[in-house]
């Protein structure tokens, strides 16, 4: 049987996810609302002076992004399963890895959208300018990594008994080195530290992203058998 070309499959799966989302707005609205609430809760919980706010803001940003991603990943895979979409994809004569990259691209777009909404809000509430090239680059690296491991692990957890509750437990330890790098890098950017002091962190994040993408590529076929 003739297989659909790899990138064509990736693009169509991602387009399908985006189209569903454009019509239902279910994921973005729940992720976005959760993120905004989390920012508010943090700003109440940490009533900080200006210096302490600079230290805390990268933590607030990343914790919010990670938890909002968990919310979105759970929903996205659960929807796929409820509607039988995953089964249909498995019958289709397409490369399994292409399914992985398609789902990952969709999740990536959702997370990036939430981050883009989040930045100006944090900017205003914490009175710190976040629109710096290196911070945006770090954000991109971090979110690519979360989307990659998240897609792989959400595909696993959606097939288990505990479902939603298992994803954070599985994903947080695995994503931790990435989160560590992201936190260090963005805190340094916001503190205007000299580049050579922290440039190792974005480099580590880049390496981690590559490793996660390779592992996702290799392992995804074992996650969606039968």
């Amino acid at each position: 049987m003739k297989r659909t070309p790899f990138f064509h499959t990736v693009a169509s799966i991602a387009r399908k996810d985006l189209q569903v989302e454009l019509r239902s707005r279910e994921l973005i609205s729940s992720m976005g609302l959760f993120a905004l609430l989390s920012i508010l809760v943090f700003s109440f919980a940490l009533e900080l002076n200006r210096i302490a706010r600079i230290e805390a803001v990268s933590g607030v940003l990343w914790v919010t992004i990670v938890f909002a991603s968990l919310l979105g990943l759970n929903r996205s895979m659960a929807m796929e399963r409820e509607n039988g979409g995953l089964d249909a994809l498995l019958i289709a004569p397409v490369n399994r890895a292409a399914i992985f990259f398609g789902k990952m691209a969709g999740n990536l777009v959702f997370m990036l959208t939430v981050a883009v909404v989040l930045l100006p809000v944090i900017n205003v509430l914490y009175d710190i300018s976040l629109f710096r090239p290196w911070l945006l680059f770090t954000l991109l690296l971090g979110i690519v990594g979360f989307a990659t491991v998240g897609t792989l692990l959400a595909t696993i957890t959606v097939q288990t008994r505990a479902r939603e509750s298992l994803l954070p437990i599985l994903m947080l330890p695995v994503a931790l080195p990435l989160l560590l790098g992201a936190l260090r890098a963005s805190a340094s950017v916001l503190n205007d530290a000299p580049l050579e002091q922290w440039v190792a962190w974005p480099q580590i994040m880049l390496v981690l992203d590559v490793i996660f993408i390779i592992l996702g590529f290799l392992l995804f076929e074992f996650v969606i058998e039968d």
């Binding site: 792989l152 696993i156 097939q159 008994r161 931790l176 490793i211 592992l215 996650v223």
Partner: peptide
């Protein structure tokens, strides 16, 4: 171990555990 406890089908459990074991050692 939580992951293993959450899956009833033995084959699925072994498969997922192997995948997570590989991912875990890397991180």
């Amino acid at each position: 171990l939580m992951l293993r406890a959450g899956i009833e089908n033995p084959d699925t459990r072994r498969r997922f555990a192997a995948v997570y074991g590989i991912l875990a050692i890397v991180t």
